[in-house]
Design a protein around this nucleic acid. Structure first.
Lengths: 251, 251
DNA sequence: CGGGAAGTTGAAGAGCGTCAAAAGTAGTGG
DNA sequence: CCACTACTTTTGACGCTCTTCAACTTCCCG
């Protein structure tokens, strides 16, 4: 199965003409493996996984898939930042999540994606054909277990976000957002304090249920507060972590 | 294992002194089985499941568990309505979902519950010891598969709710809510049109990110519109389904 | 440098929240 | 059966946060 199969799949890449495939990454060398569904797999299992995976590279703003599209693949972010969002008919948008290396997307119990996904920054992803991955899940219960864990983790995050959207003020929302980015960066082994905020004000607003203007105003307000400092390159220095925590929880 | 084991578990019931156990329901006769994780199990598997399950009965307002509590059990609603919610330190509340017969709750990837759960109306639930259910999952891949499907379904619902909370107006929220209740009632085999709205205005507000006053005002507004009719017993007749749909999507 | 997008700031307005009171509903006991 | 209480729901008046619309500034990238 191995070398031949890998090649065959490479040739099938780029079916929609908008994703550039650079061939199958050897999963055994994957730097984010321990964060995602591929954790704890034996080397023969990893090898089999490698045989069905292809790589996708996206530039900022490139779409990965759209809501309602047939969900033929699932993905794993290996580099960069993605956003997933839902739209109302009149164009109002809700970003339901930002995804970083190690994050998984494309899970659909329906046959179609429930949301759209596009790159925020240059991004690389692993692409798994859904049917093949499902078949593999039956044989690798460890992976299915892992997937269930990830799904329930996401569910908890979604509930936290509902609390934010439904009950927090603009200031609390921004504070929570910065802390979330900081925590997630640390979980990926990066520094948690000057937080990298790579997404636009519009994306942040669409994530927090605010307008870009309100996002901007609130950042300025936290800056004059002395709670944060706005650095160059989209970096935000958290000057008063405790104040930010209190703000985030509304105490 | 069977009769003895069932009895033993019955005796262990009511560990927190607030849930009344009425013994293990025979799962084979369960009316909501096909809706939940127990679907498609063979009779010996069902029998084994019966041996670890106990029944919980709650009255309106009775808590099932609280956020942060140790997640020792998972549950399945068999009758009545439950709500799950998160709180901010100052008491602001976000109801993250209403649960009806067939719905599953208590999944926690952490060791503690991520939210609180309490009964809205008189409710009955199956209670599974978490460890035992997990052990069983390893042997019944069908059940694990089912659980993953339910989790990803819930995830999609959560994203839809984020869209609602972040981007819809009060009128759109109420319209969406009524349609949701209607759809879910139909899925349980009940009539979808006079919708039973058993929960209080406060609960609805906490679910939609609104105050009770706004919920009430919006209902009255939809009534004078001729879109709905408020009947007795918490029933709401959808008079103009198409208008409600258009409202819900903001077209 | 220059042009276009992204971000910031300002002023005005709308929608929803807050506070308060009235009306409806349910449960209790005489 | 009705009266009494307590709670939920509805309605009203007002205020505040966030949005909207608009102009200005900053930041990139060619």
């Amino acid at each position: 199965m191995s070398p031949f199969e890998v090649k065959r799949i490479q040739e099938l890449a780029e079916p929609l003409g908008r994703a550039e495939s650079v061939g199958a990454t050897p999963c055994s060398a994957c730097s984010v493996r321990q964060l995602t569904i591929c954790a704890d797999l034996a080397s023969d299992e990893l090898h089999e996984l490698s045989s069905i995976v292809t790589s996708v590279e996206l530039g900022p703003g490139d779409p990965l898939f759209d809501e309602e599209e047939k969900a033929d693949h699932v993905f794993n972010v290996t580099a960069g930042t993605m956003k997933v969002y839902k739209l109302l008919p009149d164009g109002r948008r809700q970003v339901t999540g930002f995804l970083f290396p190690g994050d998984f997307l494309g899970l659909a119990n329906d046959e179609t994606y429930a949301y759209s996904a596009e790159a925020v920054s240059p991004a690389t992803l692993c692409r798994f054909p859904r049917r093949k991955l499902e078949a593999m899940l039956e044989r690798f219960p460890k992976m299915e277990r892992r997937l269930l864990g990830l799904a329930s983790h996401e569910l908890a995050a979604a509930q936290e976000q509902m609390l934010l959207l439904g009950r927090k003020t603009a200031r609390e929302k921004i504070a929570s957002f910065l802390l979330l980015l900081s925590t997630r960066a640390r979980r990926r082994g990066q520094k948690g304090n000057p937080v990298s905020v790579l997404m636009s004000r519009t994306d942040i607003g669409d994530y927090l249920g605010l307008t870009t203007e309100t996002v901007s105003r609130t950042f300025t307000q936290l800056k004059s507060n002395g709670t944060i400092m706005l650095l160059s390159g989209g970096k935000v220095e958290i000057a008063d972590l405790e104040a930010l925590h209190e703000l985030a929880e509304g105490t």
